[in-house]
Write a protein that binds this DNA or RNA. Structure first.
Lengths: 196, 196
DNA sequence: AACAAAATAGCACGATCGTTCGTTCGGTAA
DNA sequence: TTACCGAACGAACGATCGTGCTATTTTGTT
């Protein structure tokens, strides 16, 4: 046993990601988080030292959750169009399945911190840029003629689907997103065959 | 003259829209707003009666600003593809030109309130739905085969361009957005001729 | 110029924010 | 058993939040 602090910290961060996806990284309050976890404010606070450090750790935990739910499971698909399909399908499934209970963490964090310079913004920006970069890389492998344009559109469609379902209560946005993505991929790779 | 309160209220709301586009509708604080305008908190507060009413009035003022900068000027273009082009061009120009100094007010408000039931969320939702509805209507007039899908994509691309420029500091997102939109419109209507 | 009404300021309240401090508890090592 | 150390706690700090009250100033009407 190397210390139970790590476990506690992990539990705090999982809850923090959930809370932040609903209330935002700023609306994520130490008192609220502590009472949710039945801890004292000060006991929780001691794990981080400042609210900004808590926010940074929360962003990191959200990135890990996204990585494990979307990126890693898709690594079994061959690079290129197939992996792009795996990424998009998993991303949309995660939105629908509630990977983040308050809607896409990154959409919320991006909107909240895009105008607040500082380490938190930098961390969010790095995570989103990595996602866009990976999309672009796979698009290049797939042979799309403008990989950066494609990555932009995929990213935008994800934002749209998230907003559609969360704000407008229109779950149909997911299907529209799937169709829009498939429309672009079909030009370089035929759609996956229907299961037997 | 029926009272100068209306003028003061208007000045407050203009500043409130600016502030909310940067800090969010919740980060929009009465004290901050008052000191920005060199007013007392209570003097400002008296115009609204509650923070929620201030937020609702701010949403309304943002809708008016958007209407006057994007919707109304485009009414001179004939309905259909031409008006869609006018909408999109004006929307993107407004993002670039700083109609809202903190990036698209609606993108920020949508992300912030999509999980907070209440009158503010309803107002934001209504405004976004109206924008989407108008896009869909014009897409139908233009003869696109799936107007709702088109409206969704336009909306998503707007969100993407906003995030791209605000979070990623990539102004190129605007050009990508223009290209993506034109790609869809070109199928039913040739691009506008280059000026002589 | 006097007066009523409207608009703004001043002040204080309870609550909550992030943060600090001193203390207590539980487990490990000597 | 005793000494110790990391983890969590409870109380409190100053600041700021939204929100009431009561003056005071400004405005429009006579």
């Amino acid at each position: 046993m190397i210390g139970k602090a790590a476990n506690t910290r992990e539990a705090i961060l999982q809850r923090a990601v959930d809370l932040a996806s609903r209330e935002g990284l700023e609306g994520l309050t130490i008192g609220r988080l502590a009472s949710d976890l039945k801890m004292s404010k000060s006991g929780l606070f001691a794990h981080f030292g400042s609210k900004q450090d808590l926010q940074l750790a929360t962003v990191e935990a959200a990135a890990k959750r996204f990585l494990e739910a979307v990126i890693m499971p898709a690594q079994s698909a061959p690079e290129g169009a197939a992996r792009l399909r795996a990424y998009c399908e998993r991303y949309l499934n995660c939105l629908q399945g509630g990977l983040f209970p308050g809607g896409c963490f990154w959409a919320a964090a991006a909107a909240e911190f895009d105008d607040r310079p500082g380490p938190v913004r930098d961390a969010v920006k790095a995570a989103v840029a990595a996602w866009l970069g990976e999309l672009e890389r796979q698009a290049a492998v797939a042979g799309l003629d403008a990989p950066a344009d494609f990555a932009f559109e995929i990213y935008a469609i994800g934002l749209g689907a998230n907003a559609c379902s969360r704000l407008l209560d229109d779950r149909g946005g997911f299907e529209r997103a799937r169709a829009a993505i498939e429309r672009r991929l079909a030009s370089v790779s035929p759609p996956a065959p229907a299961p037997a």
